[in-house]
Design a protein around this nucleic acid. Structure first.
Lengths: 239, 239
DNA sequence: GGGCTGCCTTGATGTGGGTCAAAAAAAACA
DNA sequence: TGTTTTTTTTGACCCACATCAAGGCAGCCC
């Protein structure tokens, strides 16, 4: 886990910019922002480097500056279950701050990334001076809880086609033209859906053959979101 | 959701006792405890009464005083997925405090219960004056997160034999002689394990043929819990 | 007794999807 | 540019499990 040293002034300015954009710190008075920038540490990760492992005592929580961090568990059978992929501006591992048992999962960079480590002690200190921060952290954790809860929902959706439809419908809503751009590889998406890249490939092909979507590299175009949703409802209907 | 009015003085004393025992408030100075007791509201629930439903705007978070509250989701296919059963002293729905989308799940009393509603506004106010409370709430949420994460682990325990072994080992621990008495039919157990009664029957038969258990009606006798556990570990080992 | 009605068990069959293997396509690198 | 490396796609195969269907076995009540 190498950390690249950089000219402190430039670094500081960049950091403050990043912090200002993160929902965790937006609205924090400039002077506090500088304080925060003073105690955070930038960490550079190469692809597949681990940021932390399950059970390790918590050093603090993290803010993704660039790249993508895959948070996952390895279940007793040795299979990796993706919990969430965090991208720039998102914060992770808040849960570990107040937990005696260390990090609850593993975190690994899916691509070269830089992450800001926000050490535990000064952060807890800052909460005392700026209680609003606690609220934001609660908010952020409640979002994570929601992610987990929705994963549970997804996992109880039986077949891969249904899970993929669900994913497509959900993500097509975030765009206006129904064109979804994958940020990671398809293998990562497959893992997120709890399947293999082969099966994902086949399922996408099936939907393409039925003219419901078109796929080109990392771009998936949803032709008719309504139709997909109808198909999803239909799949759920018989159970 | 009827709330029973009671003599204010006695009520107050009882409340403060409850609060002092809850990990959320233990250690809070007596005067603050009184403040809290002043703004919380007791709610009495009959069996199967709902405390809140998914999506409802948050009134605040809750502390179970007596009884048991089942927090669950209903997934798209209409199946109810239990997230956790909260019992006296535990707090729930902290996540809803900082979330714009209301409660993330449903909560229903599994038996007659009394719950303390801690209204949102004054609680947020108290956090400002006593930041340690925020930490405790973070801690409590991180515990909830862990529960969810361990549920994920269970759901990914792939085959039925493994899930059944897991169930047997867990339940055999609650008895001294290793004899488990089913409370529902085998079909219900099958549903709990996420399989069909036929497959459960076959799997039980297999374990019986290997002399690991014996089955007679609603009674399952585990001959050697250690051996089952070893088998479970073995199943998990290769994958 | 002889019919019901549930639950459990066993057999036969079909299929979703995981895995191995290898070709095809894209990206990365020299 | 060609060459390696990674990703994606396809094909072949297999297995765990759901599902359908047919008996056993109880406990019922008439």
């Amino acid at each position: 886990m190498p950390s690249a040293p950089r000219p402190p002034d430039l670094k500081l300015t960049g950091l403050i910019g990043t912090l200002r954009c993160a929902q965790l710190f937006s609205g924090l008075p400039a002077e506090d922002l500088t304080t925060v920038a003073g105690f955070i540490q930038a960490v550079s990760l190469g692809k597949d480097d681990y940021l932390f492992h399950e059970g390790e005592p918590s050093r603090g929580c993290y803010l993704v500056q660039s790249g993508a961090i895959n948070v996952h568990r390895v279940n007793a059978a040795g299979k990796e279950q993706v919990i969430h992929v965090f991208r720039s501006g998102e914060s992770l591992a808040e849960a570990s701050l107040a937990s005696p048992t260390g990090y609850p999962a593993n975190a690994r960079a899916v691509e070269p990334s830089t992450v800001l480590l926000i050490p535990k002690a000064p952060l807890l200190d800052l909460i005392g001076r700026w209680p609003d921060l606690a609220l934001r952290m609660l908010g952020s954790m409640s979002a994570h809880l929601r992610v987990l809860v929705s994963m549970l929902d997804d996992l109880t959706l039986k077949d891969v086609e249904t899970r993929l439809l669900n994913w497509l419908v959900k993500h097509a809503r975030d765009t206006q033209d129904g064109v979804i751009h994958l940020r990671g590889t398809k293998r990562v998406l497959a893992a997120e859906l709890g399947t293999s890249s082969e099966t994902l490939s086949r399922t996408l092909a099936r939907l393409r053959d039925e003219r419901l979507i078109s796929v080109d590299g990392k771009t998936i175009a949803v032709h008719d979101a309504g139709q997909l949703a109808a198909m999803l409802r239909h799949n759920l209907g018989e159970a």
